[in-house]
Nucleic acid binder design. Structure first.
Lengths: 225, 225
DNA sequence: GGCTAAGTGTAAATTAGCCGACATTTTGCT
DNA sequence: AGCAAAATGTCGGCTAATTTACACTTAGCC
């Protein structure tokens, strides 16, 4: 790939806007770029050198295996999001991997050590990054707070609202979301059983709150959720 | 208070070890120091200038009020912890405050803007701080994961283990913890009802797993939890 | 010392939602 | 087209834990 293209892939993330071409290039920050398609699994395992990833296109889910071998969805990563060890701490024993949800994805990655060097030389970037991580923390906290204190229905409503806000195409009060999740995925995200999720979604459909199918979700009136 | 004392209060936090006396002083980073006693409420509200706090002594809980006016415990802060808007983002509409749990506490605070300046001039500190926030995030994530996937009993056991590890005084396999929490506090932390918490604690007592009273908790054999 | 409020103990009724056990539908593959 | 696998739909039993309700105990205060 042309260096310039690599550059732009990073450059259009708001974190990196303050950096010049030479800074990115000079620091050899782009060391990887890959494409993957639906269902593929991407390991960022401990065996490899620690990396930070940037999702340029598509959607993936971060999945962890618990001691019983059950999949748990840790996070849904969307276009423009950074993922991997954002804490800059190498974690030895985590059984996490990423699974591609959308038809195809494009992922940039760079070495954590390179990134650390860059942060050390660019205080402004370091500050931005700190705020970025902080923001992510806040989002996670809020999500979890919802999971714990609200019932399954409220959680589903909240999730749909968030999803609509992030990715939905609004027209008047109705919002269309490209649905790359299965009902099982949704259930896992809102921490409930698949059956309950199905039931709630169908209930919403009969109540004219939304139209659901495997390709698309249309929320009739987002203000009523 | 003598400048030197203020200096030491900050200096002995591991984050600030790399800074020189003049750096801390010069940047006027210490702008507040206060003591408070049990039950007192400390607001870090939106009206005031945004600050970051450092707990030098004692224990506090961070409490949020939900829409129904219910208290929810967001976090327990222990000696040496930073708290407040660690994300460096001013949050306009959060109804959080801190409540003193131990007999008395000592709190340092400094302006967020000053801290940001310091981070800009000290990339190493910025990096440490990012890792620090990241670590906190990881801890929170783990906690929440427990809250969601485990039952009340397991959550209580895990909480006690964590608490013991952080603050307990170990003697052979038994651990003594100074108990500054009510059963209601514990219940809120592990997200269950007060009654359930009471029941579980009593059950543990009859099973000889621990001795509980309002001043102290003694875990008979930490390896058996 | 006595009163009040906070904290603790206990029990029964109720319930959300998990789980198992299917049937049905859709999708992807050769 | 035809098959297998994945995804969705539906049901009732089951259980952990919340809720309600009230008695008892301890701590703090005048």
């Amino acid at each position: 790939m042309y260096e310039e293209l690599k550059y732009w892939y990073l450059r259009d993330h708001k974190l990196f806007r303050t950096l010049s071409f030479s800074q990115i290039k000079q620091l050899c920050i782009i060391t990887g770029f890959k494409k993957a398609s639906k269902g593929e699994i991407i390991y960022f395992s401990s065996s490899d050198v620690p990396r930070i990833f940037l999702l340029k296109k598509g959607n993936i889910k971060i999945v962890a295996l618990d001691s019983n071998g059950n999949e748990t969805i840790k996070d849904i990563i969307q276009k423009g999001d950074l993922f991997g060890e954002l804490t800059l701490e190498t974690d030895n024993k985590n059984e996490e991997y990423a699974k591609v949800l959308s038809d195809d994805v494009a992922i940039c990655s760079f070495l954590m050590s390179d990134f650390e060097d860059l942060l050390l030389r660019n205080p402004t970037l370091a500050l931005s990054y700190t705020k970025f991580v902080g923001l992510k923390m806040k989002r996670i906290k809020n999500n979890y707070a919802n999971l714990i204190s609200k019932d399954a229905k409220t959680r589903l409503y909240q999730f749909l609202k968030d999803w609509a806000e992030q990715e939905g195409v609004r027209e008047e009060n109705s919002v269309a979301i490209e649905n790359y999740l299965t009902q099982n995925d949704i259930a896992q995200i809102i921490c409930t059983s698949r059956q309950t999720a199905t039931q709630l979604l169908n209930e919403m459909e009969t109540n004219q709150l939304l139209n659901y199918n495997r390709k698309e979700i249309i929320i009739r009136d987002i203000t009523k959720l």
